[in-house]
Design a protein around this nucleic acid. Structure first.
Lengths: 338, 338
DNA sequence: ATGAAAGCGCTAACAA
DNA sequence: TTGTTAGCGCTTTCAT
């Protein structure tokens, strides 16, 4: 258990200055690697810093400079690996530049996102990274009035507040729809999670149906649940869909978790893939590569998106004006399930 | 693109006070729901807050009160779902209490963890959540001197700085070793990632080998790589191990990602599981439930650990003194792969 | 129930 | 090269 008998008041710049026999300003200069400090003074100060174990208080520094070097990162979910990867990409870049990510999780709930945005604005973050282009009116208002750069990620189908880094979900859906149609599939179904919350999955489905329509096709059956997508939901969802519609010859899933779940059902139920049934997902997760039949999917550049989003914020803060919209595109992976 | 023509200086408490015709102090009281404010004044102030879209500056508030309500959360990795789930559990609890998580990722590198700790201390977090009990000497020193509560999670095999919430990895390894021995397995191998970095996986392996020894057994073969664990590494690792040691009758993996990868290899290579080969993992991930043969594994309470860690910090901050060590235990899942 | 004064720990601007 | 002054936006304390 922690001993509470340590110095009741923490060590400040003034303490260091006193020990080093200089003014506080000089200590501040040393810590900021200012040029105009003599080597001798620098050494004295550094010795005092080490001796006291001084850690500068950024609260005070940020209050003065009005630059926090805090970056607000708000993601819809931490329940599958997609957004942690975005976060990882962003964090690598931010950390290297001396910035800190402050995270929020909206649970795919725009009202909750709004509350988080308001709470984070209290910290005056130097930049914002958000998932998606859809926000509540008040959230939009706050973000438009904020003077820090804002990057909306993982979607380019719409108007960004400031900058967007991602890809077109609509296009990804279209590509897969076109692909299945071209492969000769005619009786196509859909299995997804809660589309009213996951707006990007909904956009993929919309693009998918557009492509089918352009090929004179339509969805013959669909399964959606009022719960988040998951492997088990994909497995049970496909089981239900196939039970009700045994004649389907292809199924598009809202993402790879769902699709791999579906593939597992086929393995167990003895449904021949892709002979009798083709399966396709979205995201390009590692699990899709590790399964017995490599999953046909579209790989989203999640890690790069996080990285580039962070880079754009840093560029903007450095006075450069990077492109407003960056579509990183997706990689089509023609696997063995189609 | 963002318009930069907005108010050059942001709205402060003073602005609100002026508009409401009261002093700054009164505005502060209203915002903190102080008792001694008349209904009339409260209404006036609230109207001014709304009219100006005022968001209090927490930097200033925290500087005064020396309470940031920032919680530093440092995890080794965001590359699989394990730590995002811990983070999710912690964040749910923190968010509800008006606290913000500031995250750091150490990449299973204790030196990097030390740098992150030092950087975060500059924000004077109200609490700390870290993975594991092993830290560099300087990291330990900083954390011992910090006056905020510190919770080390995901491991109880060792001495915590302040509090620990987790489970015994050693015991989890022992349990699985004992189980395989009891099931009559005699020629047992191991497949893992980089154990010099993932110290908790190393502890599980140690416990596993202890249990084997107690049953007069030992590891007949092992595969470890200088890279992080992953599905594909598990798949290729098992392939290599079996090629070199075709007589193995069981393999223990460093975690479920690796084990599921291994299972996929068996499915493809036609290795009969569990008849010829038994497989066991650790973590209890959803993927282990969704595969054709439910994976034998031990489920770690990741989400609860994050939650309880956060609760303990809040309890400590509220002046309560919760237990110093909380072992949440693990759930043994006897699946179909053994 | 409300306000005035002081100060949290730092840095920008200016002075020496 | 170094120091002094002022103030960032808030809350604490003490007065009224």
């Amino acid at each position: 258990m922690k001993v509470q008998s340590e110095p009741a008041t923490s060590i400040t710049l003034e303490d260091v200055a006193r020990l080093a026999g200089v003014s506080g300003m000089t200590v501040s200069r040393v810590l900021q690697n200012h040029v105009n400090v003599s080597e001798q003074t620098r050494a004295k100060v550094q010795a005092a810093v080490t001796a006291l174990g001084y850690v500068p208080n950024r609260l005070a520094g940020a209050l003065t400079t009005a630059r926090t070097r805090l970056i607000a990162v708000i993601v819809p979910s931490l329940s599958n690996i997609v957004f942690p990867e975005v976060l990882r990409g962003a964090n690598e870049c931010l950390d290297a530049a001396g910035y800190q990510a402050v995270i929020g999780v909206s649970d795919y709930d725009l009202e909750k996102e709004e509350r988080i945005i308001a709470a984070m604005q209290a910290w005056r973050p130097s930049g914002w990274i958000l998932a998606g282009l859809e926000h509540t009116p008040r959230a939009l208002q706050i973000l438009r009035e904020v003077r820090s750069p804002v990057v909306e990620v993982m979607d380019t189908d719409g108007e960004p507040i400031d900058m967007a880094v991602g890809f077109s979900n609509m296009q990804a859906g279209r590509d897969m729809g076109r692909f299945l149609a071209d492969m000769g599939r005619r009786r196509i179904g859909y299995v997804g999670g809660d589309l009213s919350r996951d707006l990007r999955a909904a956009k993929r489905k919309e693009g998918f149906e557009q492509a089918l329509a352009e090929n004179g096709l339509e969805l013959k059956a669909r399964f959606t649940a009022q719960q988040p997508s998951s492997l088990l939901l994909g497995r049970s969802g496909l089981a239900q869909l196939i039970a009700a519609h045994p004649d389907l010859d292809a199924v598009y899933f809202s993402n790879d978790d769902m699709a791999v779940g579906g593939l597992m059902h086929c393995l167990v139920a003895g449904i021949e893939v892709p002979g009798r049934l083709a399966l396709a997902g979205f995201n390009g997760l590692e699990i899709g590569e590790a399964v017995p039949l490599r999953l046909t999917t579209i790989k989203s550049p999640r890690h790069s998106i996080g990285q580039r989003a962070a880079e754009h914020i840093l560029a903007r803060l450095a006075g450069k004006v990077p492109p407003l919209r960056l579509d990183l595109g997706c990689e089509f992976i023609a696997g063995q399930t189609t």
